[in-house]
Design a binder for these strands. Structure first.
Lengths: 238, 238
DNA sequence: TTGACACATTTGTCTATACATTTTAGCTTT
DNA sequence: AAAGCTAAAATGTATAGACAAATGTGTCAA
């Protein structure tokens, strides 16, 4: 008996998917174009309609094509060429390294916007805000500080949450509609008073995430600082 | 004739998907648990196996369950609770503001890793790297500098690309397999010599993206600096 | 010209069946 | 006990047929 590096022929529905993708990649079929019917593919590839249906249905799930019952199958509009970055929760990162994670709510207060915050939140001076400061520990070492300002108008019950059970991020993901939330990320230096307060003068520059709704309301502004010894600060997946 | 708010019964495969999701949500079926076979669902729901197959196949595509041929269907491991940030291309951002975008390739060279780069790329000292420096303009103003190091082992034909047609990011998305690319993001200060070289001493701290494959190989390291006057530096979508 | 209706086209779902592929368990042989 | 074989179980793919639902078109009547 001999060993063969035989590679099985790809499944029929896969061949059809590849064929359609190739037509789109090559530019032969452009955005909005009507592509052949299931019946047509049936004849072209010599397969049953269910096989074609699966191929096109999966392409529709991947937003490569759009299918309209009674009408036909069209090449979908091009997606924004963008890179997706996955910001993992610091708790997961720490656990993945086999260490224990603990977070401490250092501060939770009701505040009024000063002029700088007011302009950031596009609110009037004195608008109600919530302010929280959470320190994340990897074993005994403070590795991250999270300085968060939340628009009270958008998340009125922020103060009454139990942040040992639900992280602020998890809460905001529920309170603010998930669709259409926009972030703006900037690299900034950590606000001096906070670093001083926590005796973490060696904290590295921070990242500021500003969570916005589609309508443009700023929901929250979060500044995150890391301890220089912390290797995994922020990682993502394309 | 009267109008009725009749809602059609959801499709059978949808009912099965919902049933499985509910069992998982309620905690009755936990991570790693073996769930009933297609045959079992066939009897429970009184449908054909193809219908059950479609339901479970779509749940597998959504990474809710994992299916192993010959073995069974299992509840998938919980996904990392993570935030997705969409980094739009600077070109799109500029165009969205109604301005013209232009990029200039300032530098494209073949280089050897010094000790710092070698440790970053986990390669030996002197390993082949490509180094490019691209400046993005909004109308006439330089708003972003992109300082990119690319692992020659992973992208051997990087130098021969025409970056006026294809951006380095677009090229790398094709050259490096899309699945399982990892980023690491850090806030850092801009390397002084580069800021000097471009007479952009007022550049703001930069963001470093390190693109890694699942196997851990560093594909590219990109440092990005922005002009302080540039409002939209980086935006994302949850 | 407009509206109503019938009909063809196209996708959406479902069924019953078949065979292939992979894993697992059990049995047999050494 | 270890190795190898066999069969059962479970998923993967494909088919031919059927009916439902949505869309578009053409015809006919008002």
């Amino acid at each position: 008996m001999h060993i063969e590096a035989e590679q099985r022929a790809p499944a029929a529905f896969q061949r059809i998917k590849e064929h359609v993708l190739e037509k789109i990649r090559s530019g032969e079929w452009k955005q909005g174009d009507l592509i052949p019917t299931e019946e047509a593919f049936t004849k072209t590839f010599g397969v049953s309609r269910m096989t074609v249906n699966r191929a096109l249905r999966e392409l529709a799930a991947d937003q490569i094509v759009v299918r309209i019952q009674g009408s036909g199958t069209f090449v979908a509009q091009e997606k924004f060429q963008a890179t997706l970055v996955e910001i993992k929760s610091i708790a997961d990162e720490v656990k993945a390294r086999g260490h224990t994670h603990r977070s401490e709510l250092q501060l939770l207060e009701r505040a009024r916007a000063n002029d700088q915050l007011a302009s950031e939140f596009d609110a009037s001076e004195g608008a109600a805000l919530f302010h929280s400061l959470i320190v994340h520990f990897e074993d005994k070492t403070p590795i991250q500080v999270e300085d968060r300002w939340v628009n009270a108008k958008v998340a009125p019950d922020y103060m009454s949450q139990d942040f040992s059970r639900l992280t602020p991020n998890e809460y905001l993901m529920r309170a603010a509609p998930l669709q259409g939330v926009l972030y703006r990320i900037e690299a900034e230096m950590p606000p001096a008073p906070i670093g001083k307060m926590l005796e973490m003068s060696t904290m590295e520059p921070c990242l500021v995430l500003r969570r916005k709704t589609y309508s443009g309301d700023l929901v929250a502004s979060v500044a995150v600082m890391w301890h220089p010894g912390s290797k995994y600060q922020f990682s993502g997946k394309l």
